[in-house]
């Protein structure tokens, strides 16, 4: 017959419900999100990254990539100067302006579940054409999740945990962090919180977490405030302060989340994950 039928162009539905069709794989991508950056490098499309946000730090090669602000404060001139053929963002307020400049925009809100990450990876694979690499990476991640679940099979109910973002701000089950705890079978004591909220100290004392996971800087209050001295987590010395790197590992919804999950598992189940 002749040349094989080309694959249909990938279509992605963005977070506003619009369908975005990629007639050509983008070769100059500006990605305003660390997760997307890490995914692109991981599937071998890192050389297509021509611009990224100010706080991108992984992998090390990204330090050579021009910075253009972040999702909420975009330097539109710099973006235009880079002549991207795709801009990826998590915030849609500047989309009309960018589209008026002829820059194709893909707007996707951050994923709220851990299982959504392999799907994202596959999406980037379809968009960039690196389908094999993406499938390989996604498959590996899903295998890691399955392995984690297997190692936790003996656990019926994990410890009560409180995730402290600072000043008792915490995340509910419908956030990405909340979903991580669900996967690890830990009982997030902020189960009735929707999204992010500043938790009441009274409820914290009443629900008595066995483990406190605090992002850097937040843990000092547990040794300092007499009201918290009675918490199981404090009495058993299970208040864990995450350093900057570990905080990033559990916050970026990209390929390294597997490491993040393993670190959390180590803190939650020291006997199962030495």
């Amino acid at each position: 017959m002749g040349s094989p039928t080309p694959a249909p162009p990938p279509i992605v539905t963005d977070s506003n419900g619009n369908t975005v069709t990629f007639l050509k794989a983008p070769r100059r991508i500006v990605a305003l999100d660390s997760a997307a950056v890490e995914i692109l490098y991981a599937i071998g499309a890192g050389d297509r990254l021509v611009g990224t946000h100010d706080f991108a730090s992984y992998p090390p090669e990204v330090s050579d990539v021009p910075k253009v602000g972040d999702s909420f404060n975009l330097n539109v001139e710099k973006v235009a100067e880079l002549e991207p053929d795709l801009l990826y963002t998590m915030f849609d307020m500047q989309n009309p302006q960018l589209e008026a400049l002829g820059i194709p925009v893909l707007y996707l809100k951050s994923p709220t579940t851990v299982e959504a990450i392999p799907e994202r990876i596959r999406m980037w694979g379809r968009i960039t054409g690196e389908v094999e690499a993406a499938e390989g990476l996604a498959g590996m991640m899903e295998a890691s999740f399955a392995e984690l679940e297997e190692r936790l099979a003996s656990v019926e109910r994990g410890p009560r945990v409180f995730h402290d973002l600072g000043d008792f701000w915490t995340t509910g089950p419908d956030t990405f962090q909340g979903d991580m705890y669900r996967l690890l079978k830990a009982e997030n004591i902020a189960y009735d919180v929707s999204g992010w909220a500043q938790f009441s100290a009274e409820v914290l004392v009443e629900r008595d977490p066995e483990v406190v996971i605090a992002t850097f800087g937040a843990a000092t209050v547990y040794g300092d405030n007499p009201a918290l001295a009675g918490l199981s987590a404090v009495k058993n010395d299970r208040v864990y302060s995450l350093d900057v790197d570990l905080t990033t590992l559990i916050s970026v919804e990209g390929p390294r989340i597997v490491e993040g999950l393993e670190e959390l598992a180590r803190l939650l189940y020291p006997e199962l994950f030495p």
């Binding site: 706080f55 973002l165 600072g166 000043d167 008792f168 701000w169 500043q198 100290a201 937040a218 009201a227």
Partner: peptide, 24 residues
């Protein structure tokens, strides 16, 4: 606030005022 990488929420809630951290 805008240039800081850590979560900006604890800062915002301090600026808006609160006694959540109150101790003797």
């Amino acid at each position: 606030m805008i240039r800081s990488n850590p979560d900006v929420r604890p800062l915002l809630s301090w600026l808006l005022g609160g006694f959540g951290r109150g101790q003797w």
